[in-house]
């Protein structure tokens, strides 16, 4: 027997509701977070991720109360991201019942938060959330990655919900985060997010090969085959999906049964 590949439903939260968008925009309501989390618990999800995309800081406090309510129903690992900037934020989120916190913008602006968080809470608690986009304009010191159509690009880290390019090379950033003590990388490609055309395999494979911590592929899953590609071609340790689960197109069990028939180790 072996460590299984993980299937993780992701709940994007805005003002206390689950929402889902395309290319980080055009949000649709997808239900109550506590109800959805409980449903995924029953369906055999391996973990659950909550990403708080609430725009205003005042409303962000509701996330702690929400995590508490969800954690009470959920005997599964829970990762929470969004708006976490300080070790005090991390403490509050973990106290509410989360097991891991993911950080994106905060980690780029202040990479020390990764080291400090890892020192205080353990590396297993600290997830680097990395949002990336393809950049076709060559730049010194970046990692060129070949694309399936024969062209190539480098992947640039973006922050603030995808709105701000940083000029940072995704591969170098992933390695730095690992050195600083991140225990996992949650990788979302803006190229594929919400498209249902499949994960961005080239960057997933590149990050998984460049680091020695688990990589969670995110953004773009639409079919059973996409999960298989994420694990086998993309070498992801976990695949994250939102809309295919929220809108009932696939259940977690459908995905796991399919993967098991194709020889991917999953927990059924």
């Amino acid at each position: 027997m072996a460590l299984t590949r993980r299937i993780i439903p992701c709940l994007d939260l805005k003002d206390g509701r689950v929402v889902k968008g395309t290319h980080f925009e055009d949000l649709r309501d997808a239900g109550d977070p506590v109800e959805l989390a409980a449903r995924y618990n029953e369906q055999g999800a391996d973990e659950v991720v909550f990403l708080d995309i609430t725009a205003s800081k005042e409303k962000r406090k509701t996330i702690v109360e929400l995590i508490s309510r969800a954690a009470d129903q959920l005997f599964l690992p829970l990762t929470v991201g969004g708006g976490i900037n300080t070790t005090a934020d991390i403490t509050a989120i973990l106290r509410a019942g989360a097991d891991k916190v993911s950080m994106n913008t905060a980690a780029v602006q202040n990479p020390k938060i990764i080291s400090e968080g890892a020192a205080a809470f353990g590396t297993q608690c600290i997830v680097l959330a990395m949002d990336v986009r393809r950049n076709y304009i060559p730049q010194d010191g970046t990692t060129e990655i070949s694309l399936p159509d024969g062209s190539s690009c480098w992947y640039e880290v973006v922050t603030h919900g995808g709105s701000r390019p940083t000029g940072i090379d995704a591969i170098l950033w992933a390695k730095e985060a690992e050195e600083r003590g991140a225990g996992e990388i949650l990788l979302t490609s803006m190229e594929t997010d919400g498209t249902k055309e499949g994960f961005d395999i080239p960057i997933t494979e590149a990050v998984a090969s460049a680091t020695n911590i688990p990589v969670v592929a995110s953004g773009g899953v639409g079919t059973l085959e996409h999960f298989y590609e994420g694990f086998v071609t993309g070498k992801a340790d976990a695949c994250l999906a939102a809309s295919v689960f929220h809108f009932g197109e696939l259940t977690i069990r459908d995905v796991k049964e399919y993967l098991a028939t194709r020889g991917v180790p999953v927990r059924l």
Binding site: A2, L3, R6, D46, Q124, N212, D237
Partner: peptide
């Protein structure tokens, strides 16, 4: 001690 394809932390479901 990490080995190829065996990442550390050991994170996930195992028997």
């Amino acid at each position: 001690q990490p080995e190829p394809e065996m990442k550390v932390p050991h994170m996930g479901w195992n028997t």
